[in-house]
Design a protein around this nucleic acid. Structure first.
Lengths: 171, 171
DNA sequence: TGTAATTAGTTTATACGTCATCTATTTTGG
DNA sequence: CCAAAATAGATGACGTATAAACTAATTACA
């Protein structure tokens, strides 16, 4: 790729984020500004999600696991659960530990391959999830409210492009 | 291990993400899909940033603090640093501790208000940062490469709208 | 058959986000 | 001038991300 691109093509906006961060200098590139906006926006929204779930005694991570188990409808091997979350293998053990101690999942060793441990969701957890569904949907709507339906599609498209590219060039 | 999947009757509305997550049902709303895309994309990109910084012995959080201190050009009160990062007050202490132990910042108690502790960046840290600048910019460019300049602006605009709304309705 | 390689999962260690609580130092108000 | 409120920061506890090293069960292969 040529770095001879008209640099002025990419003059970053004198954005709101620059002011939020009390940055003295404008961003060096649109790429950097977009990156920082993504990070910043994510963390703001993440906090709201976590707070909502905390009212039900769950962390975002725990909620994700329960959602996966509910969606699947039957117990899954622990590593299969891990592969569907962000958390890598080692972290999953403690996560399942805490969920089990709270009575929301149960472990069950496979009879055919004794290395495998299945995790299943319990009825109380299903009940808990059903109570969370509506408030969480409401939160998502509330958060996305400033965006039109078209804007939401556009956002999804842009993010998908980034993710798609990233998974093709993991380095 | 059984892969007895019956073909799902529901017609997936759009998403690659749905497939990524092995979700059986499509998303319930654009808001939810956009939210999940944001979370997922962020975590993928975040990992790449962290890995790059790890090669220089820094975490993302530590790097942020050093960037702030370099940008400011003079020592800042600890709480001022905290206010410019995502991390709230309590977490900042340990962060500064570790940075200090590594020799990248130094603490200095204010003479006028003895409650205040200033944090300043050291010369070795400045040197370290200067070595990181280029690779990090390259990474940002690489990550944003699939987006045109116009798309980048659009992404920034959408994210700013979300953040702006969120900060007005912190709930 | 017996040993090496794989695979599933745990343990340990470091770093960070978040909350509640604590100390030390101003500042304020009667 | 002194007690109460406010402020700066530290501490401790819990949950999570991440990597490295480990155990135990299974499979591959010579």
């Amino acid at each position: 790729m040529s770095s001879n691109k008209k640099p002025d093509n990419s003059i970053p906006s004198a954005g709101k984020l620059q002011h939020e961060l009390k940055k003295k200098k404008p961003f060096e590139s649109l790429a950097q500004e977009a990156w920082l906006n993504l990070v910043r926006t994510h963390s703001q929204l993440q906090i709201r999600g976590e707070r909502m779930l905390a009212e039900f005694g769950l962390t975002g991570c725990q909620y994700n696991i329960l959602r996966i188990l509910r969606g699947e409808g039957h117990p899954l091997p622990i590593l299969e659960v891990a592969s569907r979350t962000i958390s890598p293998v080692p972290g999953i053990t403690g996560l399942i530990d805490r969920l089990e101690k709270a009575g929301w999942v149960c472990r069950e060793r496979s009879t055919t391959d004794r290395r495998v441990i299945y995790v299943g969701i319990t009825d109380p957890a299903l009940e808990l999830l059903s109570k969370i569904d509506q408030p969480l949907n409401d939160l998502h709507e509330e958060i996305m409210q400033p965006l039109s339906q078209g804007d939401r599609r556009e956002l999804i498209r842009l993010l998908e492009q980034l993710r798609c590219h990233a998974s093709e060039h993991p380095e």
